[in-house]
Every structure is written in C-alpha cells, then in structure tokens.
Design a protein around this nucleic acid. Structure first.
Length: 717
DNA sequence: CTGCTTCACCTTTTT
DNA sequence: GGTGAAGCAG
C-alpha cells in the first residue's frame, strides 16, 4: 500500500490525528468513530516514516485489544516483525521491572499474585491480626488495599490517613499483607504499575534512560486510567517526541478499579500545548440507535459536550420490550435470536449471574453461543494448581505457590504440619521452601512426605531453565501425581478438569509456536500471569453472551441489552452516589453503542433473583432515552401501576408458544385463572395430560405455584 | 490425615 | 443458586 492509499482511507480528523508530529495529542474518539483505525494507522505511519520501532509503545487495557491492534498495525506497516511494543499497562510494566529488578529492589524471578492470591493473603493477615471476617469482609479489605495502591498510597501513608477504628484495622492488614507478599517474592497487579512509577520517579538515571528509549507513546482508553497509570504516562511521556492519548469519557466504566475520568478531562492542563482532535463521525450504528444512546448519556454532567454524527441511515427504532416476568423475557429474546445468524447477535447484561438462564435457553434451542468473561480459565483451581507447580519449578521460594500445592494431591501433609511450618516461617522470615527442609516438631510421616515433595520440586527446578514449558508441564503432571488426580473418573467435574489441563498444555504449545526464540518457562509464566479470560474464547458463528463491561470495544449487527431494571442498571450498589450513577449510565451507553443495525432493550416486572421471585421496576435510564427513538412493546398482562396505557399490548400467550393451534380450553397456557387462596394468576405451563395434567401458575401476589389440575380449585378468570 | 456432608454466606464490573 | 468453611466419620 502506498502512502497516499494509506491516508485516503481516513476522514480529515482521523488523518490529522495520524499525521500529528510532535508533542502531546488528545484524540477524543466517540463510540464507533474509528479509534482503532487511528491508532493502528498512526503506529504504522510512525514506522513507515522511519521512526525506530523499538522507541514506540502502544498501551491498551486488555490483552485482546492489544492483540488486535498489533495485528492490524503490523499489516499496515508492512513488516513481519515490527519491533514496537503493543500491550497492556501491566505487561509493559512487567517487562520494565524484569529488566530493572535490581534497581527496583525486587527478587530476580519475582512472581505475580492474582486477585485470589491477594484475597488469600488478606484472609491470612486478618486471621493473624485477630480481625474477624464478620467485622470486615476480606473482599472489601482487599479492594481498599487495591484502591490505595492504585492511588500510590503506601501502607504507611494509608495508616497515617486513617481516623476511625475500621480504617486503622485495614491499615494493619495492608501492612501485613505487604509483608507477606514481599516474603513470598511476589507482586500483585497493582504493584506492577506502582513499583514502576516508584522506580521511575526515584531514580533519575533509570528515568532518563527509559525516556531516551521511548520516543513515541500511544495510550488507548485514556478515560480508564487510574492514578498510578496516569502518573506512569506523565513520567514516560512528558518529554517524548509524541504522546498520543485516545479516549472518550462517555465510555469510562472502570471507576471501581480506580479509573478517574479527570485524567482525560484534564489532559490539556496536564500537557500544556496539547493538540485536541475530536472524532465525531460514527460509522457503526444507525441514526436511531445513536440518537437513543446519545440522548441517554447526555444526562451525565461530568463530560465534554459533543455531538456524534451518524454516517449511516436512520435504521429501525430501538425496541423496548417489557415483560411480565423473566421467563418470557428469556424466551422472547431466544426466539428472536433463533432466526438470525448466531455470529451477528450479542446479548449483554450487567452481572455475570444473568447469563445463566440465557445459556440454558440457548442449549435448549441448540443455538451455539460463547460466554465472554464468565468463568475464567486461568482462575480455575486445577489450572492454578498446575501453574503453581510450574512456578515452584522456576523459584521454589515462591510461598504462594508452595502453599497452594504442597498437599495437592494429598500426600499426608495436613493442617497440623502446615501450622507448625507457618509458625517457623513467621518467626524466622524464611521462605516455606527453606523451612520445609528441616521441619521441627513434625511427626515422621509428614516429615518424609515433605522430603518427598521437595525431591519432586528439586527435580523440576533442575529442568526449568532448559526444558520447554509444555515438556515441563507434561513431566510435572507425571511426577507430582497431579495428572493422576482426576484420571479415570466419569464425574462431569473431573472430566472438565482433565480437559482444562489438556487445554493448558495446548496453550503452552501454542505459546512455543508463537515465540520460537523466547519460549522459556519464565516467559511463559509471565504471559499466563497476565492472561485472563478473553484469550481463550473465540466467537464466530456463535451468539455472544457478555457483560456490558466485557463488551467494550466490540460491535454486533444485533444487540440485546437485557434486564434493564433498577437494581441491575443502575446496580443496587451504585444507585446512591451520583458519580457511580453516571458510570452506570455510561455502562448502558457503551452497551447500546455496540449495536450496528438493531438494538433491543428488555426488562421484566417480576424476576427470579437469588432464587426468589421479586417485583422489579424499570430502570430510571429508560425514561432518559428519547422517546422518538424508541418503539415500546408490552408482552403479557400489565401487573403494576407503572404500566403506561400508551404502550402496545401483546398477550402473554403470544410469547409463550408460537406454534399452538386454536384451543379454547379454559385451563391452558396463557389463560388467567383464579385460586381461592392465591388470588389471580396466569397459567405458565402444562405438563402431562388428562387426569395427570399439572399446571404451573404464576400468581400476581404469590408467585409461581404448581398444581395437579384435577385437584386444584382453579377457575377461569 | 482424608474425604464426605452440611451449613451459612454472599452475590458488580477485571488487569 | 454456588462456594467456602466447618463438622464428622472412617
């Protein structure tokens, strides 16, 4: 592709952003405005115009986004091995800290603690401090610690800031947590950024050298940067030849993780003389979809005023479907989906738990689907266990890994033994590995078991630097006995575990194929430590089920946003605080703007929540969507006072079963009935026939009940 | 020490 | 409804 071809595929604003030469640049990229196109073209253009690729870094938030960006930029740059960095904040920092572990005062092969490791350490620390989990939920302590780290607040400073009892206790946990993490030679996710910032700001020579290396910096999703990431960008980008930040505050959805919308709103103050380019042409959605989404998000106060232009036709109205109960919602959505190419459809929801009924319905109808995010491969116990062995192979002093698998599979090293070791570890400050070499006061049986375990690990250690990851994995499955743990079992869970272990093996082989040179065990461990869900699931020919968060950056011809009710959207935890409410609104905005041709919003008046039927109210956001862009339908019989008479009325029977023939029995599906005790209700389903017939009835007040028709005192209403 | 059962708990979003 | 901790029998 020639340079002129390359640029003609861009609109004037995009072109300007791609060609911008020196100094800070902020690209305000509205939804669907070709953001990725700008970043990839900019990368390619830098390479084509002769910049040293090793001095270019593009930073994104997810591995998936990074992979996509790398591929597209490579193709555009026309080089097989481009040499520039494309990756997440965390992966950039990990490389940096590996390179600089001495200056950063870190152990040479430090490992990475994920959030469940974090939680484990928090629980342990709380127990040692005698803080009960009833008083302070460990998970909220973990998140407080994480927040502090994201804001670059150390344990000491955090302690100094606390005024109340709970705060002081959290500060104690924070301090002990840090101690334990350090003892285990591990960094948590937040540390990867925090320690990088600390090193860059405390060591002038290191900072100078890094700045000399990094000439061009691109940051994607700038609206989602937290304080430590923002600090990192400032440290690295302040003097670089070009610093290009791309983002859209309307799509900021990670406040709970420390993201601050201020960073993008304040960019021009932080980087004086910054050029600002707004991309306002939306190439993705039809005009009505865009109008609905824009109208909604305009209710937010903390944002720049902007006007997105639809580049496509008007399209169909946004459909708002309201149902009497969740069952009908799920069936109606599934039926609509059944008529489409599955790969073109996405069903989006607020919380992971909402996916299940849709999954079941997809299975029932044999519609292929993928769940994005859902259960995370690398967080499954068996995967973590196997990787813990691999970590021990790389560094036996890895306390977290040691404790995870020292007795998995069971080898007779029980709680009593581990308590004794733990005490010695605490007193001496040595690692578990060291302490286990000469365990004091431990019965002979456990002693021999420990010795045997150590032999196994030592064997692995001897191979870790020379063997390939997959070979070592296979070997360790054999010698640790872990491979045999789930062998020969027909149990569904065990079969799944075996498959996951196989999957891990093939992912290791895949890693080796992709990195012919650097496919060491250590490199592999780094990669999997930062890998999360997405890298596994590939859609294509399947309906996508996803949380609103995980859908960011994706697009689909047809989108359903389901469960648009108070409690879900805004989420119950986020309905109070004004800022959180704005974030919930943005979340819906992000979901709506994923749709290209068709967007359907659904809600139900009654829903099964935690196993109980609960009355639901429509989300307040529904009212904020401009009515002209909406086409409302009500499926079923109105049950609440909130029912608006204007709305189109569709009897429930319509959604229940499309293929039912004319049928005038008084007690059939969809009919209103009356029960002396439960009052009025509607028949949801029939099972069996004749005298055996059983009816499921949903009562307005009493919820779902089942009856044998012959005995139940049901009368048509 | 192990493996099973039961019970109480909590339920937002993720690198 | 699912998970993790606690309790109990072998």
């Amino acid at each position: 592709m020639s340079d002129s071809d390359f640029l003609t595929r861009l609109n004037p604003e995009q072109r300007e952003a791609v060609l911008h030469e020196k100094g800070p640049l902020l690209v305000l990229a509205g939804a669907g405005s070709g953001k990725t196109r700008v970043i990839t073209h900019r990368l390619a253009r830098l390479v084509r115009s002769g910049a040293d690729p090793r001095g270019i870094a593009a930073v994104t938030f997810t591995n998936k986004a990074a992979g996509e960006m790398r591929e597209r930029a490579q193709a555009l740059a026309g080089t097989a091995a481009p040499g520039f960095f494309v990756g997440t904040f965390h992966s950039w920092c990990l490389r940096f800290l590996r390179r600089r572990y001495r200056e950063a005062n870190l152990p040479p092969r430090f490992s990475i603690a994920d959030s469940s490791d974090q939680l484990g350490l928090v629980k342990e620390a709380m127990e040692e401090l005698g803080i009960s989990a009833d008083m302070l939920p460990p998970n909220s302590v973990r998140s407080r610690i994480s927040q502090a780290k994201n804001a670059l607040v150390s344990a000491e400073r955090f302690a100094a800031q606390q005024t109340d009892f709970a705060g002081e206790r959290i500060a104690q946990v924070y301090a002990l947590y840090e101690k334990k993490l350090a003892a285990s030679g591990a960094l948590d996710f937040d540390d990867l950024i925090g320690r990088s910032v600390r090193l860059l700001s405390s060591s002038a020579p290191v900072a100078a050298e890094e700045r000399r290396r990094l000439r061009h910096l691109l940051i994607d999703e700038y609206q989602d940067t937290n304080s430590s990431q923002d600090a990192l960008v400032k440290l690295l980008g302040a003097e670089s030849e070009s610093l290009c930040a791309v983002g859209d505050e309307d799509q900021s959805i990670y406040r709970w993780r420390g993201a601050e919308i201020e960073h993008i709103l304040r960019f021009e103050e932080d980087f004086p003389g910054a050029r600002v380019i707004a991309l306002e042409a939306n190439y993705r959605s039809t005009a009505r979809i865009l109008a609905a989404a824009s109208g909604l998000v305009s209710h937010n106060r903390r944002r720049r005023e902007k006007r997105l232009r639809a580049d496509r036709g008007d399209g169909a109205s946004v459909r708002l479907w309201r149902f009497e109960e969740d069952r009908t919602e799920i069936e109606a959505v599934a039926r609509e989906v059944a008529g489409r190419p599955p790969g073109e459809v996405a069903i989006l929801y607020r919380t992971n738990a909402q996916s299940r009924p849709f999954e079941e319905e997809m299975v029932r109808r044999r519609i292929p689907y993928v769940v994005v995010g859902g259960m995370k491969f690398y967080e499954r116990a068996e995967v973590k266990d196997v990787l813990a062995y691999l970590r021990l192979a790389a560094r036996p002093e890895d306390d977290l890994a040691f404790r995870r698998v020292v007795n998995v599979p069971a080898r007779g090293i029980g709680a009593a033994t581990l308590d004794k070791l733990a005490a010695v570890v605490r007193e001496t400050g040595k690692s578990w590995w060291e302490v286990s070499a000469d365990p004091q006061g431990v019965p002979d049986r456990a002693r021999t078991a420990l010795a045997r375990f150590r032999e196994v690990i030592q064997d692995l250690r001897g191979k870790a630097d020379t063997w390939t990851p997959s070979a070592l994995l296979e070997h360790l499955l054999a010698v640790t006995g872990y491979g045999a743990l789930y062998e020969g079992s027909e149990d569904r869970e065990d079969v799944a575990r075996r498959e996951n272990i196989q999957e891990l093996l093939s992912s290791a082989r895949e890693f080796e194929r992709r990195n012919a040179e650097g496919a060491t065990v250590a490199e592999y461990l780094d990669t999997v430590s930062l890998a999360t869900n997405e890298d596994i699931a590939e859609s294509g020919g399947a309906v996508t089920l996803s949380t609103l968060h995980a859908a960011k950056g994706l697009e689909f011809p047809q989108v359903f946003v389901v469960g648009l009710e108070e409690g879900f959207l805004p989420h119950g935890q986020s309905a109070e605080d004004e800022e959180e409410l704005e974030e919930e609104r943005r979340l819906l905005y992000v979901g709506m703007t994923r749709a290209k041709d068709s967007l359907t919003l659904t809600l139900a008046d009654r829903r099964l929540v935690y196993g109980r039927v609960e009355p639901r109210r429509p989300s307040r956001f529904v009212e904020e969507i401009p009515a002209q862009a909406l086409e409302e339908r009500f499926f079923g019989r109105p049950s609440s006072a909130a029912f608006s008479p204007k709305r189109t009325f569709f009897p429930a029977a319509n959604v229940e079963d499309e293929s039912q023939e004319a049928d005038d029995r008084p007690l059939r599906r969809g009919r209103r009935v009356r029960h002396p005790r439960y009052g009025f209700g509607v028949i949801l389903g029939e099972e069996g026939s004749g005298e055996e017939t059983r009816l499921t009835v949903y009562f307005d007040r009493a919820g779902k009940k089942k009856f044998v028709a012959r005995y139940a005192d049901l009368t048509p209403a």
